[in-house]
Design a protein around this nucleic acid. Sequence first.
DNA 1: AACAGTCTCAACCGCCGTAAG
DNA 2: CCTTACGGCGGTTGAGACTGT
Length: 208
Amino acid sequence: MDKNPCFCSQDPEVRKGPWTVEEDLILIDYINHHGEGVWNSLAKAAGLQRTGKSCRLRWLNYLRPDVRRGNITPEEQLLIIHLQSMWGNRWSQIAKQMPGRTDNEIKNYWRTKIQKHIIKRSESEMSDLVNPPSAASASTDHHGVSAADATGIAYSPPSDRGCRAEFTFSPPPAAQVPDDGVFWSVEDLWPMQSLISGTGHDAQFYPL
DNA sequence: AACAGTCTCAACCGCCGTAAG
DNA sequence: CCTTACGGCGGTTGAGACTGT
């Protein structure tokens, strides 16, 4: 087991790193014929020089037939933000609410697309405290819509109580999805104004 | 065209909970 | 009850892709 990682990491029979097409085919073929089972046994029985964990991860995050990859929709973006604000980093739980999406994908999306904006906004807010922006400059996005009104998402920086930062979220109207089918970027969705004046009440971070 | 910086995401690591013996 | 084996989870890493200069 992995509480004795030295055995596995020093085992020359165990492969690491990116999966090859051949390995993928072996795993898919084996699971198609025998189903998912005890992963360590499965890896050996299939003739894969991989750990059971590695096989499980590869199957769940990549090879499973119902996995949808890429093109996170605006609705999914908002759902991720909403669920993350309710549950925190319970990625597997969030993934269960989003059929076809994996916890790994959601986690990566959050960290690369959303969390980045939290940090940026926190930094800009800190600078705004020193150099306050004009009221008009932050009130609309480039679609000409109030960002806070459009998304209903609001962010409040950490309080002096030592709690985590808070999001608030109210479901946006369906009209926010563009007719041309082009996905909105996080920049489009991000509620710039609300960073300063969040007013929603639906959800918030739980203190750690 | 070449290089540097940034971003994305597949995969690994380590911890925890639980079931079985 | 204790130990072991395993699955599951969240955090992190690093290689390759992409973008800007």
